[in-house]
Amino acid sequence: MHEMSITLSMIDIVNDEMRKRGVERLERLKIRVGKLTAVEPQSLLFCFDVCTRDTPLEGARLDIEEVPISGTCMDCNEEFHLEGLLSLCPRCEGGRIEKISGNELDIVSMEVV
């Protein structure tokens, strides 16, 4: 389960940002997780809860925005969203797809007191 190490990386970044800004309490953390990543949001929530216990981050809410996979077909220029991970153009079934989104694993913002 690599969600634990991803959570720890996330907390490191947040702690740095809070220190830099002289903030002591975190209310909410917003992150984006693309559906192409091998990251399970439910596990992130669990890990975040465990890793923040007895720290200044305890009780903060983790908001996870899941980013759908989208791409442009380089053969027919169709832009599309994908439900699964199959990388074929729904219009011409071409395989030359330029991915636009889905690989995100980003911290967007934090709400602090």
Binding site: D12, I13, E17, R21, L105, D106, I107, V108, M110, E111
Partner: peptide, 15 residues
Amino acid sequence: MHDVLIGAKILSKNE
């Protein structure tokens, strides 16, 4: 309470 934009990749250190 206020929102602070971070805009960082979570695995940026690894990258």
